[in-house]
């Protein structure tokens, strides 16, 4: 049993690196990512778990980082948008660029991470599968059509990529 007071030193595993940071016990994972670690690719939208702009992957699954306390994710593997590209853009990112799926860009990191988790399990999705998968990510530019096309395109890029390996 552990007890935590106002300020705590915690260990977070983010993008395959271990970080030791001091957080306020009230800080959400989103607060820790943006304010402590400078990982501002994760966006603060509604801060109420409704818009999906703060989506990150926890143990491979998309979650709202505004709805989890930082002290509550110790020991979990977190991936943010900064951890996705290796030497070059990830195929999903490349597909978003080439399909014009980015307008203001605020929903884009969350959309891409949601798409990543989805395409990890579904290699040949339909239009409807994609819409279900991104149903927790709001785009207020309402560019959903291009986003769906980009994810379908990314799926086919990833299938081609696998064949070459």
């Amino acid at each position: 049993m552990n007890r935590y007071g106002l300020k705590e030193k915690i260990e977070l595993r983010i993008n395959h690196a271990t970080h030791h940071i001091e957080v306020d016990v009230r800080d959400t994972l989103l607060d820790a990512l943006r304010d402590q670690l400078g990982l501002t690719g994760t966006k603060r939208g509604c801060d109420m778990g409704e818009c999906g702009a703060c989506t990150v992957l926890m143990d491979g699954k998309p979650i709202n980082s505004c709805m989890l306390l930082a002290v509550d994710v110790m020991g979990r593997n977190i991936m943010t948008i900064e951890g996705l590209a290796q030497d070059e853009l990830h195929p999903i990112q490349q597909a978003f660029v080439e399909n014009g799926a980015v307008q203001c860009g605020f929903c884009t990191p969350g959309m891409i991470l949601t798409a990543k988790a989805f395409l990890d399990h579904c290699s040949n999705p339909t239009d409807d599968d994609v819409r279900q998968a991104i149903s927790g990510n709001l785009c207020r530019c309402t560019g959903y059509r291009k986003i769906v096309e980009a994810i379908l395109d990314a799926a086919s890029r990833l299938r081609r990529g696998k064949r070459h390996v």
Partner: peptide, 9 residues
Amino acid sequence: TASPQIRNI
């Protein structure tokens, strides 16, 4: 129920 992100938590 809710969204995929919420259902994961």
